[in-house]
Design a protein around this nucleic acid. Structure first.
Length: 270
DNA sequence: ACAGTAACCTGTTTGC
DNA sequence: TGCAAACAGGTTACTG
């Protein structure tokens, strides 16, 4: 479900309800997620005050005095703020209970994760070797061009690799390649610096635009208040197979690349 | 080091 | 209509 814009939308949505709030209780109904929810989560988190909520890649980092809560939404996860008296539904696996609101983690497929670390979360095993943030100045066409040298791997899989750049999932990979006129199956090492400059700019643009609109809701992404994001209306190619290309009107194609559906215009992308 | 594949899970859509 | 296969926004671990 969530790519960077959806995670950032969630972060912004829950921050006013959670920041500076003290955790009254932690309820784990299902500890079997992508990795087991730590058994000591309640012991560590209860009575702690959430000082801030940060984001690194698609991980949300909840800062407390004694450690960090790390939440990843996986494919189908969402976080919502609900009144404390609202009963949990199916797949509502974890509650972080505050004074009168509850942060509720819902995840049908259970590919998400909830972790606790006392160390610097950026040094956590899962975060320490991640690539740059796409919206940072560090992420440029020059960077992409440099590390793609010699790679025969297709460019779509390349930009979806979180060790290259974080936050670009299946939707925004297709969209940014379309905007850049680059065919998703082109070898990463056979793209000019000039075209990587364009691609890096388009990745920044499409992610920023999606954040502005509250992310993309295709099926089950919801914001903290249960409302959808509206970027789905702006998709040029993703899920548009057979529809006319917005630029040239030839039908959008879909093809599986590295086991992920990839949407593109064969006329516009080379 | 790299590239390709399987695996984790449930729900919905597609196709015969 | 019914059932099985395919597919879904992610990422790691394993294989060769």
């Amino acid at each position: 479900m969530p790519e960077l814009p959806e995670v950032e939308t969630t972060r912004r949505g829950i921050t006013p309800y959670v920041k500076k709030q003290r955790v009254d209780n932690v309820v784990v109904r299902q500890a079997s997620l992508r990795w087991p929810v730590p058994r000591n989560l309640k012991r560590n988190l209860q009575d702690q005050t959430i000082k801030d909520i940060q984001r690194r890649a698609k991980y949300l980092l909840f800062v407390t005095e004694t450690g960090h809560l790390i939440i990843h939404l996986g494919m189908s996860g969402s976080l919502r703020m609900v009144d404390n008296k609202i009963a949990a539904n199916k797949h509502d696996h974890v509650d972080i209970v505050f004074n009168n609101k509850t942060l509720r983690f819902h995840d049908p497929r259970r590919f998400g994760s909830i972790l606790w670390t006392k160390q610097n979360p950026l040094q956590h095993k899962l975060l320490k070797s991640l690539g740059p943030e796409p919206l940072s100045d560090e992420f440029t066409g020059t960077y992409l061009h440099q590390i793609s040298q010699g790679k025969k791997l297709n460019v779509k899989t390349f930009i979806m690799n979180s060790h290259i750049v974080v936050g670009v999932g299946n939707i925004y990979a297709s969209e940014s390649l379309f905007l850049s006129g680059i065919h998703p199956q082109r070898a990463a090492g056979r793209i000019s610096l000039r075209r990587y400059d364009i691609l890096a700019e388009n990745i920044k643009q499409v992610l920023s635009d999606a954040i502005e609109l509250g992310g993309t809701t295709l099926r089950d992404f919801v914001r903290e208040d249960g409302k959808p994001g509206y970027f789905a209306n702006k998709l040029n190619v993703y899920k548009q197979a057979g529809m006319p290309c917005p630029a040239c009107s030839s039908p959008i194609k879909v093809r599986s690349i590295s086991q992920r559906s990839s949407f593109f215009c064969a006329q516009c992308q080379h």
